[in-house]
């Protein structure tokens, strides 16, 4: 019995192919609709603001936020799920990106830092990648206290929070739920996401990454 458990763990621990997005996202959408809710995680930011008393400053936060508690539970579940995946169901902590993407990242860094087949999953240290070069050590408290890290983490977060509410949804609410419901406004929002993402990735991010390097 035990060896089957180990085998199952090893099986799950492999990198997942893209088409697993279908079952994972499909199951998420199905369960939430079945419970009478909708899939959209950025709404939690509004709920958290409202719960902190933001309603005193703007009517936008005067709503029955306690009814949104279920969505906070979804976010909490995502925290647990990621904890399990990262600690017990991952072996190499790698982003299995294409060779072309590695070349692009090295061009952004202006140095041959990353090698194909050995790219950490996120730009930060993990159990496997303890020696992540400083240039790609972004998701850390140390990095937060540099201008570059401050822009990426604080300004990036601000844009996400502002943009998601302005557009009325994020990747889950518009790109998944909205498109799956054939909502034209969601398609426009997703095109907006792409225009913004392309501008940032091609014309701004390369300069931000070089700050201090």
């Amino acid at each position: 019995m035990y060896e089957y458990v180990v085998q199952a763990q090893e099986f799950i621990s492999q990198p997942w192919p893209w088409w697993m997005g279908g079952p994972v996202i499909g199951l998420t959408i199905f369960l939430l609709l079945y419970f009478g809710k909708e899939f959209g995680l950025s709404a939690n930011l509004r709920t958290m603001c409202a719960a902190d008393g933001a309603g005193d400053y703007a009517d936008f936060f005067n709503f029955d936020w306690e009814k949104q508690g279920w969505n906070l539970m979804v976010a909490l579940g995502a925290v647990f799920g990621a904890y399990m995946a990262a600690n017990y169901f991952d072996t190499d902590y790698e982003a299995h990106i294409s060779e072309a993407a590695v070349t692009t990242l090295n061009k952004m860094a202006g140095d041959e830092i990353l090698t194909y087949g050995n790219v950490p999953l996120v730009p930060g240290r993990d159990i496997v990648h303890q020696d992540v070069p400083e240039f790609w050590d972004i998701y850390s408290w140390k990095s937060l206290f540099s201008l570059r890290g401050l822009i990426i983490i604080v300004f990036g977060g601000f844009l996400i929070g502002f943009g998601a509410r302005y557009a009325g949804g994020c990747t889950s609410g518009h790109a998944i739920s909205g498109l799956a419901d054939l909502q034209l406004p969601s398609l426009v929002a997703v095109m907006g996401f792409f225009v913004g993402g392309l501008i940032m990735t091609w014309f701004i991010l390369p300069y931000i990454l070089r700050i201090g390097f």
């Binding site: 844009l159 929070g161 009325g168 994020c170 929002a189 907006g192 996401f193 913004g196 993402g197």
Partner: peptide, 10 residues
């Protein structure tokens, strides 16, 4: 809003 969100995402 979409463009702002996309910039943050990237």
């Amino acid at each position: 809003g979409g463009i702002i969100f996309g910039m943050g995402w990237a």
